[in-house]
């Protein structure tokens, strides 16, 4: 039986990643709590907890992934890379067109749309569009 050893990063890399994650999430929580003057601690804890996951991912990406992930030198040659590229470029064009149409409609109809809602729609719409495009392309061309 053969065994493979997963590459690991030195302990200080994990420590740095954890410190950066904690610093980022605590900062986000503190800023969110400071901006909303009432119920500082509740807001700060909620935002710190919500941002901890992405902050850990960012810390891992910066300090750990360089040790544990070995880049594939031929990744760009795979058909999947081409599908991702096409799906993302298509989603970007869809996003620009949708934003233009939405802007026209809100101007004509004199609508006030909350900025947070717009950003959420942009992020979710672009992500879903890219995933759907990838699914269609891969099904059609595999």
């Amino acid at each position: 039986m053969t065994t493979t050893t997963r590459p690991t990063a030195p302990p200080e890399a994990y420590a740095k990643a954890a410190l950066v994650a904690l610093a980022l999430s605590l900062t986000a929580g503190a800023v969110a709590g400071w901006v909303r003057s009432d119920e500082f601690w509740l807001v700060a804890v909620v935002f710190a907890v919500c941002t901890l996951g992405p902050a850990i991912a960012l810390g891992w990406l910066i300090f750990v992934s360089g040790h544990t992930v070995q880049p594939d030198p031929h990744v760009e040659d795979s058909v999947e890379a081409r599908w991702v590229e096409r799906a993302c470029s298509g989603a970007f064009i869809d996003l620009v067109v949708a934003a233009g149409v939405a802007l026209t409609l809100t101007s004509v109809l004199d609508l006030e749309v909350p900025g947070g809602l717009v950003l959420l729609a942009v992020v979710a719409g672009a992500g879903i569009d890219a995933v759907l495009r990838y699914a269609v392309i891969s099904r059609r061309e595999s």
Partner: peptide, 23 residues
């Protein structure tokens, strides 16, 4: 042997994917 995914070989064999020049 080529350092790519099996899906890439399938797509090339079916002429649905033109490989890059290095590939």
């Amino acid at each position: 042997a080529l350092g790519v995914s099996r899906q890439t070989v399938i797509s090339i064999e079916r002429s649905r994917f033109d490989p890059s020049l290095p590939l």
